[in-house]
């Protein structure tokens, strides 16, 4: 191994139970044209063949730019959208074929925390009602101790004053509202929490408080997180493994020190080199890869490798052959690139 960071420590989650097993998940949204007669003229390939495993107690970070399909992926895992094909196995059960009562039972175990704490809480419901709503929807999961005492307990767990149970969302700050959203997510004792950009609307000093809370809760309740964010520093901090998405596909998937220390996919390298580091002394010393242009239209992605139109390494093979996500020579993580190679100059590690 050329890089001392790769494969240094064994994966602490290697023997843990696989909570969520996602295989070749596909979701295309049809594009319709015409005023009177609607014809389907194409499809936005929002998620196009995504596979990963999530283990108990582990955090999988998903990074990518807007339009890469990370939020669609979250909706698919919540079954808020039905995938076109692929499979999701949740604790050994085929999650996608569940119907009726069985689906409702399984759904309890996968919860979501949304990005915007201002729009994801009903302004006309008190905090107590917001956090108790999951129990109204799942009456058989009602706590034996009584709903109200459980809600107070949850408020305490997320670091809010339990006496504020009758207050309304507008009486709380952004960080506190995000805590309310987290309490609601915890109410049904889930196994998996999908965090869709949970801290991107918060100020830096508050962001750190919420991230610490998420880490504490994971320790305490053995939660698995899927942590979706566009901020690579935040994902780095909280994740055990990281998936980099580009136009509906995973470009690179590996443990955090592999992705950040020895990225092998050109897109990951470009992403990392574009993140400004809060240290003026390294100004001008880091290699900057500035990508040309914008991501292509997901309704009409390029043939072969989807990144090839912006890639400086692209050759003929990238145009004709779609690269598979697999472990490539010289790396330990899986990379979907024909020319995957470590770049000595691009590493977020010192």
């Amino acid at each position: 191994m050329s890089n001392p960071n790769t494969g240094a420590q064994p994966d602490p989650f290697a023997d843990s139970e696989v909570v969520l097993d996602v295989n070749d998940l596909v979701k295309h949204f049809p594009v319709k044209e015409g005023i009177l007669v609607k014809r389907t003229t194409g499809a936005v390939q929002a998620v196009d063949g995504v596979s990963f495993k999530l283990r108990k107690g582990e955090t999988l970070g998903i990074v990518g730019e807007s339009g890469c399909g990370k939020s669609t992926l979250a909706k698919l895992l919540m079954r808020l959208e039905e995938p076109d094909s692929g499979s999701v196995t949740f604790r050994g059960e085929d999650f996608l074929s569940l119907r009726g009562a069985a689906l409702r039972r399984a759904r309890r175990k996968i919860q979501i925390i949304f990005q915007d704490p201002y729009t994801s809480l009903n302004p006309r419901m008190s905090v107590g009602d917001i956090i108790a709503e999951p129990f109204t929807l799942h009456p058989d999961a009602k706590p034996a101790q009584g709903v109200r005492s459980r809600v107070k307990e949850l408020l305490d767990v997320v670091g809010l004053n339990p006496d504020h149970i009758n207050r309304y969302p507008h009486q709380f700050s952004g960080g506190q509202r995000q805590r309310i959203g987290i309490a609601r997510g915890l109410a049904l004792n889930p196994d998996v929490i999908i965090c869709d950009e949970p801290v991107s609307a918060l100020d830096v000093s508050v962001q750190a408080q919420v991230m610490n809370l998420l880490e504490d809760l994971q320790q305490e309740f053995g939660l698995s997180y899927i942590f979706i964010a566009h901020d690579l520093s935040v994902v780095r901090h909280i994740s055990d493994r990281v998936a980099v998405m580009y136009l509906g596909r995973i470009a690179e998937l590996g443990r955090d020190h592999e992705i950040y220390g020895a990225p092998a996919h050109p897109y990951t390298q470009a992403l990392l080199s574009a993140v400004p580091v809060p240290d003026p002394t390294v100004r001008g010393q880091r290699q900057e890869i500035v990508l040309k242009g914008d991501p292509p239209n997901p309704a009409n992605p390029p043939s072969g490798c989807r990144f090839r139109t912006r890639c400086w390494k692209a050759t003929d093979i990238c145009e004709t052959e779609d690269p598979v996500l697999e472990v490539r020579a010289g790396t330990t993580q899986r990379t979907a690139c024909h020319h995957a190679a470590q770049n000595e100059d691009v590493s977020a590690l010192d």
């Binding site: 000093s205 750190a208 780095r236 901090h237 010192d350």
Partner: peptide, 21 residues
């Protein structure tokens, strides 16, 4: 502020926070 920043170039354990609002 500087201490509460998650860093991309270093693995941190726990972020120090600025308490309160």
């Amino acid at each position: 502020l500087l201490e509460s920043l998650p860093r991309i170039d270093a693995e941190g354990d726990r972020l120090s926070t600025v308490p309160g609002l």
